[in-house]
Amino acid sequence: MAVAVLCQLDDGQHVKNIYWNYHCYSAEIVWEDDDTVIINGVLFENVEKDIYDFRRDK
Rank of each mutant, 00 (worst) to 15 (best):
M1R: 07
M1D: 09
M1W: 07
M1F: 10
M1L: 12
A2T: 14
A2Q: 13
A2D: 14
V3F: 15
A4G: 06
A4D: 08
V5E: 03
V5T: 10
V5N: 07
V5H: 02
L6R: 15
L6C: 10
C7V: 15
Q8Y: 09
Q8C: 13
L9Y: 06
L9C: 05
D10H: 12
D10E: 13
D10P: 01
D11A: 06
G12C: 07
Q13T: 06
Q13L: 13
H14K: 15
H14S: 12
V15G: 08
V15M: 04
V15A: 10
V15W: 02
K16F: 05
K16S: 14
K16Y: 03
K16T: 15
N17E: 14
N17K: 10
I18W: 00
I18D: 00
Y19I: 01
Y19F: 15
Y19M: 03
W20A: 14
W20S: 08
Y22Q: 10
H23P: 01
H23W: 13
H23Y: 13
C24A: 03
C24L: 08
S26H: 15
S26D: 11
A27F: 03
A27T: 01
A27W: 08
E28L: 10
E28R: 09
E28F: 05
I29W: 01
I29Y: 00
I29S: 00
V30M: 05
V30N: 11
W31S: 12
W31T: 10
E32Y: 04
D33T: 03
D34S: 09
D34Q: 06
D35T: 13
D35Y: 10
D35Q: 13
T36A: 05
V37H: 00
V37G: 00
V37R: 00
I38K: 07
I39E: 01
I39N: 01
I39F: 04
N40G: 03
N40K: 05
N40P: 07
N40I: 04
G41N: 12
G41S: 07
G41W: 02
G41I: 03
G41R: 03
V42E: 03
V42I: 15
V42W: 02
V42Y: 01
L43Y: 14
F44W: 02
F44L: 08
F44S: 00
E45P: 01
N46I: 00
V47I: 12
E48P: 00
E48A: 14
E48T: 14
E48Y: 12
K49M: 09
K49R: 13
D50V: 00
D50C: 01
D50N: 15
I51W: 06
I51Y: 07
I51G: 02
I51M: 11
Y52W: 08
Y52V: 05
Y52S: 05
Y52L: 06
D53M: 07
D53L: 12
F54S: 08
R55C: 03
R55L: 13
R55K: 15
D57Y: 10
K58R: 08
K58P: 11
K58D: 05
